[in-house]
Amino acid sequence: MTVTTETRALRTQGARVKPSRDGGIRESAISRAVAMAVMIVATLYFLTPLWWLFVASTKTRQEFTTTNPLWFSDFALFDNIAALIQYRDGVFLQWLANSALYAGVGAALATLIAAMAGYAIAKYSFRGRETFFNVILGGVLVPATALALPLFLLFSQAGATNTIWAVLLPSLVSAFGVYLSRIYAAASVPDEIIEAARIDGAGEVRTFFTVATRLMAPALVTIFLFQFVAIWNNFFLPLIMLRDEGLFPVTLGLYVWNTQVSQIPDIRALVVIGSLLSIIPLIVTFLALQRFWQSGLANGGLK
């Protein structure tokens, strides 16, 4: 019913536009211009801070406060990077490596767990399935920040604060990932294929890994990306859990430096250049996986 009304609505709209062709084109030119303007403003809005960050990173300390913040003066980017890497025996590189570990391993395992859970909920019927799913879905509503303190107290009981596990274990859970996996598995993994795999003698685990995960790949990439970004940017949990500088992720490390600016004003330049370097892995991950993700979405649309 709804479908038919919608089609009819579309048809009448099209019918109304078509006769007055001139008006139609002008209208679309105007709306296209408005859309472009909105997108240009949005692009500027999002890119200006990045531009500022990049320009600021190329300046020496003197030029930093005295020159136009949105244009280059002297180009000291590589000196700044060298200073950053040398400061405190390269602790910044350690932070980057930690972030990569937490976000990379955390997101990979979180994706696997979410995929398995979502697939199981979508494809097996068992008692309490919906309750189970609803409880997980409820988890989407609880902000991670609200869980940090209870997690700290739990980890304290286990004596596991200030360890890698304190950050890694809570990162393995993605309620949103389970939700997305279920929806996607239900839509893109036909029961017939699973049946066929079973008839061919594949066990359930093998079916999941060889058949289901391939069909679910676009959703898995999305979950991985979301979780990677979420862990990379997660600041509050490491702030509460970690005290050993060698375990900090890059977000926390830069924040700590930023609070020391009143004691060591020079550190400000390192915070700026460090911020620039810390977003590069995010950009790379996003661009590398975006292709994957988009083609997956497009394929999904063809079916």
Binding site: R243, D244, V256
Partner: peptide, 10 residues
Amino acid sequence: VQTGPNGNGG
């Protein structure tokens, strides 16, 4: 030595 942000910072 363990570290963190300044006092009021966390």
